[in-house]
Write a protein that binds this DNA or RNA. Structure first.
Lengths: 324, 324
DNA sequence: ATTGACATGTCAAACGTTTGACATATATAA
DNA sequence: TTATATATGTCAAACGTTTGACATGTCAAT
């Protein structure tokens, strides 16, 4: 592949001149500019970004670690991050941790070796200690670690909205399916909001924990089928993701329960799938696009040395469809 | 961030020695090895992969260009590519072209500038000419461009299987919803296979083109609702993706048509969503995981200078669920 | 005639690493 | 004793680019 020297030679000028053209600095006549551009084209030259990065000490790479892009929520989040990274002249390094601490640690090291400009952490399987010592521009998704900046939706409010809707529709016995509450994720606050409102209204409820992030379909099937079998009289479900909600719908169908006639369901996230699942899922909308945008912005501002606020709670919104 | 010089200084040895430890070459005593490792740990040292890349002329980066990771098929494909890239000691650079030729061209240039080791192209909006001149390790997904290597599922066979199933279930008037046939995608062969079998059995059919890749939900709604309104007597649908199939189900519901009672539906891909949509979608399974694995392997083998076969057609499989 | 903006050139250091050539020393085996 | 394997060191080039210091022009305006 052609180098800047080849271009200089071909254009019959010095490398300095080529560099000046490339970086728009110093005086360059229009003729010269054209001459250099022509040479670059003839050689199909692309400046070596690796050499540039080495010198600039900036890679223009943003690292994203998530459990798995194949999960709709993370897929849409990654899509947004990628979009805004591009807008900021950055490229996206994608890592699926599979929620495996070994892999996650390994990925973080890789990213440091590659000198990515910042890391967006949507997977958090390590000890707080390890993140603390990272000393790197970081943004966390849905998790509060010391005073690392994070972006999250207003989970507690989301839980409240879900509970309020179900109760207002007349539900008297509601199952809430959430993630593993032992992991210190902010999404646990959905449970707090939900339970508070349920208690306020004296509505019976039960909270069922899954390892939701793993996105293990069999696990979902197991948990939900057991739930339906053991408690045939529940008339409402608040699931912590739209995908779980979809599984609930599926099992309602198998158990011959009408949705929303006999049982009402509220999901969370408002991923695209929520609209094309049948029936359309009533859900708590997280502003996924905006969360991605903000995450990138926060990385960028840290790179620029700005001091940034740590808390970034984005508003949620109830989107009513056909399951309530 | 610490450099190899800092490590050498701290360990009281020469950089050459540190480098030898790092790369396992030459003679190194166990004591020395430990001493160097300790210094690296104390300094929280990570070798600068950028400097290494510059020297080695190898970035250990694989570029992936797809329309959008948020689309389930591409999300699952990306997930697989990421997994196998990691297995091969590579990192994944993710780009969503949004099927925008300008963006796609820009991304390809970016990747060349970053000297990625190879590019997996799942988006092809440019003229053949541009790909031809790329002169780079490339693998194409579902598209044949000159003699660039490609991986694809056995689309024609998939179309046949779908048609055979629908017909064997008694369908007499089948709608086939496919992508834009003008784009020279291998997925068009699904249409060929489907139409041939339909003709053989003298079954009436109609082929409806969409710009499927765009994943525009409104477009889907528009096309499918019109289809259902104009041809209320169709009793079978072969959709070129599971997502489109989901939209068909949705509109069947709105039109009060029973699935599979009055109308049978077959999708394509077998993305995860196919199992959790209601009813579960009967579909033609592409081995997505394997396609990702193969794509990475083909990049790696090109890097190693091997000559590789160009055609990689992977078998499809009928997965029957509840829509037929 | 002088000044200053414009245009290009030469040269070399720097970014962090690897690698080869070569030197030197110790310990062990033949 | 000699040869050989082991262990470490010094030195410098190379990867491709940017950048600053400095030199040397031309040309037009004062």
């Amino acid at each position: 592949m052609a180098t800047i020297n080849d271009v200089a030679e071909r254009a019959g000028v010095s490398v300095t001149t080529v560099s000046r053209v490339l970086n728009n600095r110093g005086y360059i006549s229009e003729k010269m500019r054209q001459r250099v551009y022509r040479a670059m084209e003839e050689l199909n030259y692309q400046p070596n970004e690796i050499a540039r990065s080495l010198l600039r000490k900036q890679s223009n790479l943003i690292g994203l670690i998530i459990p798995n892009v194949a999960h709709p929520f993370f897929g849409e989040f990654a899509s947004s991050v990628e979009y805004y990274a591009y807008q900021n002249g950055c490229k996206l390094l994608l890592c699926n941790s599979q929620l495996d601490p070994v892999k996650e640690r390994d990925y973080i090291e890789m990213m440091r070796r590659h000198r990515v400009d910042g890391i967006i952490m949507g997977s958090h399987t390590l000890e707080v200690e390890e993140y603390r010592n990272l000393n790197y521009p970081i943004v966390t998704l849905d998790r509060k670690i010391d005073d690392l900046p994070y972006v999250a939706s207003d989970n507690e409010r989301g839980g409240e909205l879900a509970a309020q809707l179900l109760i207002s529709k007349g539900c008297r016995k509601i199952a809430h399916i959430c993630g593993n509450l032992k992991l210190e994720m902010l999404s646990n606050r959905r449970t707090i909001g939900f339970e508070r409102v349920a208690r306020q209204h004296n509505v019976e409820f039960m909270t069922i924990q899954t390892n939701m992030d793993v996105f293990d379909q069999q696990e979902y099937d197991r948990i939900i089928s057991r739930l339906m079998a053991e408690f045939p009289d529940i008339d409402g479900v608040f699931a912590t993701s739209d995908i779980i909600a979809a599984f609930v719908i599926k099992w309602c169908r198998k158990f011959g329960k009408q949705v929303p006639g006999q049982i009402r369901i509220v999901g969370y996230d408002d991923v695209n799938a929520a609209t094309w699942i049948n029936p359309g899922i009533t859900t708590i909308r997280q502003p996924i696009r905006e969360m991605g945008r903000l995450a990138v912005e926060l990385i960028r501002r840290q790179m620029d040395g700005e001091t940034i606020e740590k808390e970034h709670l984005l508003p949620v919104e109830l989107v009513e469809r056909e399951t309530t």
